[in-house]
């Protein structure tokens, strides 16, 4: 394969695995440890898939049940902000890949640079998410006791609904927009929570990378975190069209 190169392991070069300082006692060889770690990380992501899978199931059912309400409610979201966030997250995925690459080539400076860039992109993403959330709170589109149907029963009162060309919904259908926003906040909230956890780990890695923790041949932690960060990206790749782009024409 021309698109990648194989690393020669420290352990292989040294001939004897006892010499690798990164080998945990329960493993026989560095390869066994690397395989086990990689597999464990994928299994963890498998549990994450099932975790979000529950939410996607709920989404699938209600989108079909309450399609008109989902359309009107979805029109309240800004495609522009959502699109920017998509690109931001994809870019942070790229910088994370480059971070892993730097760690593998033992370049400390560029590793820290890319980790910080990834962190910053995450901050901007969450900032934009915060702006979107704030707008929803102000318009009382957050589900619960204060939920307001104003934008859906009387779209003329709401410039966003006017711009989308929404027609007034009958009361019983308009009430179902709350289900959409319940899902919107549950799904993007869970996603944001995963990002916050990830950014905490990023800070920890930046701190540790300064004392050469990942640039002396033991890159596993950075690689596993990369897998997690890409996974969070994948979730957003699905959330964006499913939440923002319902019947936009």
């Amino acid at each position: 394969m021309s698109d990648s190169t194989v690393i020669a392991h420290d352990g292989l070069e040294a001939g004897h695995h006892e010499h690798s300082p990164h080998l945990h006692h329960q493993f026989e060889s560095v390869e066994q440890q690397a395989d086990a770690g990689n597999f464990a990380m994928w299994l963890f992501l498998l549990t994450e898939v099932m975790f979000f899978g529950g939410l996607f199931t709920v989404y699938m059912i209600y989108r079909n049940w309450y399609y008109p309400a989902f359309v009107a409610a979805s029109h309240q979201l800004s495609v522009k902000l959502g699109g920017i966030n998509s690109v931001l997250l994809i870019t942070s995925s790229l910088t994370m890949t480059l971070g892993v690459w730097s760690a593998q080539l033992r370049r400390k400076g560029s590793l820290i640079f890319f980790l910080m860039l990834t962190f910053l992109l995450g901050v901007v993403f969450l900032g934009i998410k915060g702006v979107e959330y704030k707008e929803k709170f102000e318009k009382h589109h957050f589900p619960g006791a204060n939920y307001s149907l104003q934008s859906f029963v009387n779209p003329a009162s709401d410039p966003v609904a006017v711009a989308a060309g929404d027609k007034p919904l009958p009361l019983d259908i308009a009430q179902r927009t709350e289900v959409y926003f319940s899902l919107y906040f549950a799904m993007t909230g869970m996603h944001a929570l995963h990002m916050i956890v990830g950014m905490g780990i990023l800070l920890f890695m930046i701190f540790r990378a300064r004392s050469d923790a990942y640039t002396t041949g033991h890159t596993a932690f950075v690689e596993y975190f990369g897998l997690y960060w890409h996974f969070v990206d994948i979730i957003w790749i699905f959330l964006f069209p499913l939440l923002y782009l319902i019947n936009r024409h």
């Binding site: 698109d3 194989v6 690397a34």
Partner: peptide, 18 residues
């Protein structure tokens, strides 16, 4: 060696994917 799951991805590939 591909079984060891330990490869360096060329940044060129990363950019194309991006």
């Amino acid at each position: 060696p591909q079984e060891s799951g330990h490869r360096i991805i060329n940044p060129r590939v990363s950019f194309l994917v991006y």
